[in-house]
Design a protein around this nucleic acid. Structure first.
Lengths: 255, 255
DNA sequence: GCAGCCAAGTTGGCTGGCCAACTTGGCACA
DNA sequence: TGTGCCAAGTTGGCCAGCCAACTTGGCTGC
């Protein structure tokens, strides 16, 4: 919340977008209601029409409003849509739901990267990686097993963190490691022996898997992670539209 | 493909975006290479810098390039990202992979909408809905069970389609029913008796579930669907970034 | 009553310009 | 050699304006 305000404070169009989002989600325009015209909003906020359009593009991408030529924008839904940080960080996400996040570092090893890891993290042959295995809990109950591969520069920092630290993105951010872009792949996988032990489920029972590759602003990969959730604990939600889509459906590749 | 070209042909910035996408995916700028400056691209394409920025915003949303103040854009990856239509239509998706889509209508009933359906499709109390159950196949092998609820206006059209028709979005589009926005929720669910029979798997075995609510340009819901995939056949892939995110992680609600 | 036309309203798209914030590489200097 | 500063290059952001494409509601005429 504080983070949202900080980001909104940065630029004018973000402030307008934040204000409109607040108005929409609080129901000021009704559920299928129509927004004021761009020109009217421009006058209301004392900004140019271009700035209003920039703000509305954000809301359109979030699935809050439609937009087509000739008629006013229509409120699509009172949707929520968390911030990027709540998606990326288990800790942020849990706290935003009012749950208490927990975690335990099961293992941390440093070893040569295999071919797949070099490919994902864009590393030179012979590079080493840091691999962690963590159990994540919500209010004490295990919900997820997280296997993360870090490149050397990031891994060194992670290795120095105390094993019981809850959030990893926060301390990394303080060391100048930024997470800005991520690619996610979601599918189903069977629990292996480690999964079963940590999550207290049967071996072979289904888990919801999220593979995630995160990069910093320069495009350098900083993390390659594989999270396995107990079914019934989470669901992933996406909005897309003809105007802007970043979701796709794939034939499943090996592994 | 033809559809992409049609859309690209519409406006200038789409043409520029399509051209840049082609150049990037074909490797013209290298994998972690840097794009020309906005001004240079503007001159190259003989458009204003604003138009170039609009085109680059599309590529940024698709996860093809980064973008930060002070330095040139960097190529993030040679990613693919299907079009919206390939995501929304099983038929389009299958054909884009070179597979032959098939389908069989198992049942089609018309009945009063329950509370959840009225909520999702924004219908008046007492409204009726059309409910279909379809088995979807790829090159003959069953991969997915689709349960779709249509509002009356759309359902009447669907009911008139021959039961062995492969694509439903195409004939609907010809009748003026447009699909422009969709909300997706992805989780895991256990196969029930119908699922098991149609997909020839055991009852209770895990399926990847996608719930989807689609609306037309006016914001009117036109479809509420629940697709259940056999594990190992598909994976969902999403890109998001600080700049624009439409993906979120939810605590799982009932049903 | 009904169909079709028309004008007003609205968003999409594009231009040109301006300044601020930030990155980067080279240069000056210790 | 190494450190710090600085200027050029680049993207983010905002403005004002213009026209085209499209929707909608009302009016006209049959």
């Amino acid at each position: 919340m504080a983070l949202d305000q900080d980001r909104a404070a940065g630029s004018l169009y973000r402030k307008v977008a934040a204000d409109l989002r607040e108005a929409i989600t609080s129901g000021s325009y009704g559920d299928a209601g129509r927004l004021p015209a761009e020109g009217a909003l421009a006058e209301q906020y004392s900004v140019s029409r271009g700035t209003v359009r920039q703000a509305l593009a954000v809301l359109r991408a979030d699935g809050l409003v439609t937009s087509r030529r000739g008629t006013r924008r229509v409120v699509l839904g009172t949707a929520r849509v968390q911030s990027f940080s709540e998606l990326l960080s288990f800790t942020h996400w849990a706290r935003s739901m009012g749950e208490e996040p927990g975690g335990r570092l099961e293992s941390l090893v440093r070893r040569p990267a295999d071919a797949a890891e070099r490919e994902q993290l864009r590393l030179e042959p012979g590079s080493e990686v840091y691999v962690t295995l963590r159990l994540r809990t919500l209010s004490g109950t295990p919900v997820m097993v997280e296997r993360t591969v870090y490149p050397p520069l990031v891994g060194e920092l992670v290795a120095q963190l105390p094993p019981d630290v809850v959030s990893h993105t926060e301390p990394l951010r303080e060391h100048g490691i930024l997470f800005t872009d991520a690619d996610h792949t979601i599918d189903v996988v069977a629990a292996n022996a480690d999964d079963a032990r940590l999550l207290t489920c049967r071996r072979g029972s289904p888990l919801l898997r999220e593979k995630r590759r995160t990069t910093d602003p320069t495009g350098t990969p900083v993390e390659w992670s594989q999270d396995r959730y107990l079914p019934g604990t989470v669901a992933f939600s996406i909005h897309n539209s003809l105007a802007s889509s970043a979701l796709s459906r794939h034939a499943r590749e090996s592994d």
